[in-house]
Design a protein around this nucleic acid. Structure first.
Lengths: 230, 230
DNA sequence: GTGCCGTTTCGTTATGCAGCGAAACATCAA
DNA sequence: TTGATGTTTCGCTGCATAACGAAACGGCAC
């Protein structure tokens, strides 16, 4: 059976239908940076009324693509999980778009961005390569793991010690980077690393979109950890 | 801009809409093994009339997902290229399907299958790993290349010499395997290797679907080339 | 030539669904 | 309490399009 190991025609069509509306596509794209957003903001992002947006969000929720948590009179929607983010990333990858229309490459996005909630782009790939090369990351059956020497080095570089000490307990998932076509660190480990770098001010989020902007200090610190951008 | 480096909401919706119809999804799934099929056969695969199928095929063609070549009174449709196949593979990957419905894993598909026109699954990954380990494959900026010692070994194992001699001129593309989550050899090199293994009878296509069945002889020969299935 | 077959085009019908406004519901701030 | 704000539900209209049958257009065989 062609579809035995993956989706059958109805499941595939159902997923396609969820993307088939520009309003829903816009909402999903707006959520790809991993932040949760209230319904009204998503309605504005999609340029539709509140009632329409609500209906679309319900469909995406029922389809398993979104999660939601209520807080006061707001309902915050987010992508349902890392798999959904990875899937969307793959869906929206430029290779297939290129023949349709040349994609305008955004330099900052190529350099560093969030892939859902972890670091991707040239910087993410450089980090993964460098640390694998130094033996700071090793891959086992259940994913990537940080070694003890890496923890020491992170502390040296200014990482808060209690946070660094917990990192080896987290598992990383290698995640294919669509602009670089090489692997970077995702999963709980990738998320934790990225969160710390944001906290430390080595990176900050762009006002809009998924780009991450490394600070001068951040680049210096990363260089001492073997991570260099050409 | 969120979508700067990839698709905007309209392009994403357009692609979604192409998948959103079970009939079109069925046609695409039927073409994922890389073979070209006439319109009538696709109509039957999708369980719709000839007129309806023709309209769907036109939409997929205009959308850039299919290619076509006429031969006599038949028109043979095929996926537009490797990127489309890879994109569909990503669309239909089981991770996102799992929460919707547990996917029934097909043992033969997991072991060996076509990823569009090249070998994927456990066997494809094993081949890639083994040959990279032996230095028979090396990766350069523009992809994977077969080394001369590998050519000699292939000839030893029964590969037709003129074919084997041409292999180092072909470039391979490393392709992420969705069941194994590791890389295998795609691109022109992967296609050529797979075609030869089919010609040699080391593999044969399953009657239906994308599974590839290795013969006892094929497994023996592959083992002499370092490729082993656990 | 004539008939057969695979395919596309045309014309038609019917259905699914996106969109909005109005109203209901919930939460927060006076 | 009352009013303001964020969100969902309901009812409605209009449009896009999937489906089929009939007919037209090719290529092939006799």
């Amino acid at each position: 059976m062609t579809e035995a190991a993956s989706l059958n025609r109805y499941q595939l069509a159902e997923l396609g239908a969820l993307l088939a509306e520009p309003a829903r596509a816009a909402m999903l794209l707006a959520l790809m940076d991993g932040r949760a957003r209230p319904a009204g903001e998503l309605a504005r992002a999609a340029s539709v009324g509140a009632a329409t947006a609500s209906a679309h969000l319900k469909r995406l929720l029922d389809g398993g693509l979104l999660g939601v948590h209520a807080q006061g009179r707001h309902r915050y929607y987010r992508l349902a999980g890392d798999e959904v983010a990875a899937w969307l990333e793959a869906m929206a990858l430029p290779q297939i778009a290129r023949p349709l229309r040349p994609a305008s490459a955004d330099a900052a996005m190529c350099r560093a961005r969030t892939c859902y909630r972890h670091l991707a782009g040239a910087l993410g790939v450089a980090l993964c390569d460098a640390w694998l090369g130094r033996g700071w990351l090793h891959s086992s059956a259940d994913g990537l793991q940080l070694s003890q020497p890496a923890v020491e080095a992170l502390c040296q570089a200014g990482w808060p010690e209690p946070v660094a000490r917990r990192l080896p307990q987290l598992r990383g998932r290698s995640c294919l980077d669509w602009t670089e076509r090489r692997l970077h660190v995702g999963g709980p480990l990738g998320v934790a690393l990225t969160a710390s770098m944001l906290d430390l001010g080595w990176l900050r989020r762009a006002e809009r979109g998924r780009a991450l902007l490394p600070s001068a200090d951040g680049l210096r610190r990363l260089a001492t950890l073997g991570v260099r951008l050409d």
